[in-house]
Amino acid sequence: MKGLLTVELKFSEYHTIFPNIMLTILIFLAVLMLFLNVIRRIKERRLREFHFQFFVDNYDKLKFFGTLVLIIAYAFVLESIGFLLATILFMFLISLLFIGDIKKKSIFVSLTNSLSTSLIIWYLFGQLFDITLP
């Protein structure tokens, strides 16, 4: 630093200048927020109260984690087994999960949805428009 209003510029260090400024601002803001929060808590006399809850009450464990796992699994197999197969499987399973039961009708709906969407996307984008698909 040559002074408060001058930034030392060196070509091989160009890339660090701005991130450092941003980091400084972020730390400053974080400290400020923490400070204000503590002050407010002291004022309201509830310094030790913490009630942070991540999930909503009675959250749907199956659907939430099911969705998460299915999406990640989908991305994992996408390149190895190909777009079409992966998508048909994924869409079928996740539709079924979202409906929430395995009645005949649900299976039928899921299957139609997954087959038609996958094929249309594959044909329209992959074949006709020549977009690079997994």
């Binding site: 989908y74 994924f90 979202f98 996307i121 977009i131």
Partner: peptide
């Protein structure tokens, strides 16, 4: 939602993959 959301997910995946002409990391 059980019909439209799976479609949206797949479209998002396809779009992400295609945005830089086929980069799997964009899906991640």
């Amino acid at each position: 939602k059980y019909i439209i959301y799976p479609i949206i997910i797949v479209m998002c995946v396809v779009g992400s993959y295609a945005i830089n002409n086929g980069v799997m990391f964009d899906v991640w």
